[in-house]
């Protein structure tokens, strides 16, 4: 008896655990990387800044699918053996972290310099100004961008199916081997990601509407 779209969907959702796990582990790399390197890029000058920027650009500007393969195949060659899960979380997380670091830096740079001067006038140290005044504002302003990066991260986890992890995409391909019903299988796969990502997108939109002042621009075209 051929499986229904719903059966197939349930079969694919068996991979949801892996998708979520890779995402969460990925965040453990992404969040610290974004904060540390975003702030470092904001604070440093000259050679130090060049170094920071190079690291960020390596993770951000590389093609993530190639990064994943490179680390998956190359690390054992140089004697480092990590699980596919760890490699995936690290590569996808640092890639997302590279994007988010630019939001952190841009958010900090966008603050009017009066904020820092007001903090200094109150006698706060540079570190205190950063933590108490600048970061809270920058992070709030940039939170919609972080939500978008999170969605990108969730979607990028589809790649781990290529390094043998049993995520939703991998499950879809497994089911495709026993069931010739590509329409149902790949529609179900798209739907599975949609039900994960769309609520996050809606939350991001809600955040954005709360943060942004309502604009009065519209065009009748």
């Amino acid at each position: 008896m051929p499986a229904s779209l719903f059966d197939i969907w349930l079969g694919i959702l068996q991979g949801l655990g892996t998708t979520v796990t890779v995402t969460l582990y990925g965040l453990m790399f992404a969040v610290p990387f974004a904060l540390v390197f975003g702030i470092a890029q904001f604070l440093t000058h000259g050679v130090a800044r060049l170094l920071v920027t190079s690291v960020i650009e390596f993770w951000r500007s590389s093609a993530v699918i190639i990064l994943l393969f490179v680390f998956y195949y190359a690390l054992p060659v140089v004697g480092i053996t990590l699980s596919a899960m760890t490699v995936s979380a690290m590569v996808l997380g640092l890639n997302a972290g590279g994007y988010a670091s630019q939001a952190v830096r841009a958010g900090l740079q966008a603050l009017p310099s009066g904020q820092r001067e007001a903090g200094a006038a109150l006698g706060l140290s540079r570190a205190a100004i950063l933590v108490l005044i600048e970061l809270p504002q920058a992070l709030v302003a940039m939170s919609p961008t972080f939500v978008n990066t999170l969605i990108q991260l969730v979607k990028a986890t589809a790649l781990v199916s290529l390094v043998t992890l049993t995520d939703m995409t991998f499950r879809a391909k497994e089911i495709a081997q026993v069931e010739y019903n590509p329409v149902a299988i790949y529609t179900a796969l798209l739907l599975a990601f949609f039900v994960v990502c769309y609520p996050i997108a809606l939350a991001g939109r809600w955040l954005e509407a709360r943060i942004a002042a309502p604009g009065s621009r519209s065009h009748g075209i």
Binding site: K155, A172, P182, F194, C197, Y198
Partner: peptide, 12 residues
């Protein structure tokens, strides 16, 4: 489209 991965679209 924005809530689904490019890989899934390619397979689709």
């Amino acid at each position: 489209i924005r809530s689904t991965p490019v890989l899934a679209w390619l397979y689709f």
